[in-house]
């Protein structure tokens, strides 16, 4: 027997995403307007923009947690209409279930797939090992530090082997030291698991450090203002001249100096 495994690279396309909110008094507010871009396999994409530009809404639309007013999100050509296991999401606040241990949180997705207990424990443990939480598998989320909780959330998102990871300002509540450490870990994990990542952040430095491509949104309504490739060599040095130049360029777009 011949097994022909066709591994098709992942492709995510956003086509003319527009989101209007009904304010309730007959007025509608346009928060996102005609947003189109693509995310390719194994690519890390950072979404940047002034606060209130709808970055998080855009990510939630990609995830299928919200529907756009116009436009479509296509994952490998198929419209995304509801949340599902093909994408893993890491929320701003970890969103771990407090009544479950770390291991039980990570294995919940496998439980839903009705994978037998021994296999799901094994697999969940291997992902906990990957994020460096093997020794805390029995702890409850509230017994962990902020950084460890986000690591657990990463393991939980990875365990279902999604082709795309979505991150909504996942490190914004962490102290700078933890933040740097977990950013480095994300790159290591991405290299190992070769996921595509969409990262919403308000930190220009974080975006440049992690991303291959930056999508810069303008203020209300959020439109694609600029798409930039980050061509800096990895591992990136936050203090290098090229890094700082890139940072200046991005800040120029964000504060409106560069139209």
């Amino acid at each position: 027997m011949v097994f022909l495994e066709v591994i098709r690279p992942m492709k995510l396309e956003l086509k003319g995403i527009t989101k209007e909110f009904d304010q309730g008094n007959g007025n509608t507010v346009v928060t996102l307007e005609d947003i189109s871009f693509e995310i390719n396999d194994k690519e890390i994409v950072g979404i940047l923009g002034p606060s209130g530009c709808g970055k998080t809404t855009l990510l939630r639309i990609i995830a299928g947690l919200e529907r756009p007013t116009k436009g479509a999100v296509l994952l490998d050509g198929v419209p995304v209409t509801k949340p599902g296991a093909r994408m893993g999401m890491i929320f701003q606040e970890h969103a771990l279930l407090p009544w479950r241990s770390v291991l039980e949180n990570v294995s919940l997705g496998l439980e839903i797939l009705e994978i037998p207990p021994i296999q799901r424990q094994e697999k969940a443990m291997s992902y906990l090992d990957l994020v460096g939480l093997k020794d805390s598998s029995k702890s409850r989320p509230y017994e962990l530090s902020g950084g460890m909780r986000q690591r657990a959330a990463v393991a939980r998102a990875l365990v279902l082997e999604p082709s795309l990871l979505l991150m909504d300002e996942p490190f914004s509540a962490l102290d700078p030291q933890t933040r740097k450490q977990i950013q480095a870990d994300i790159l290591r994990i991405q290299e190992k698991t070769s996921k595509a990542i969409v990262l919403v952040t308000h930190s220009v430095e974080e975006a440049i450090f992690l991303a291959d491509k930056l999508i810069i949104l303008s203020a209300r309504p959020g439109k694609v203002q600029k798409i930039l490739e980050v061509k800096l060599e990895r591992p990136r040095d936050r203090m290098s001249l090229q890094f700082l130049e890139m940072r200046e360029e991005v800040l120029g777009y964000l504060d409106g100096r560069t139209p």
């Binding site: 949340p83 606040e93 969103a95 279930l97 919940l108």
Partner: peptide, 24 residues
Amino acid sequence: SWMEAVSMMGARESDLIRSVILPG
């Protein structure tokens, strides 16, 4: 956020009731 995190795992309504709403 609990509901959303679990629905991202491809959970059906019955999974959400059993795994999030009841214990929560």
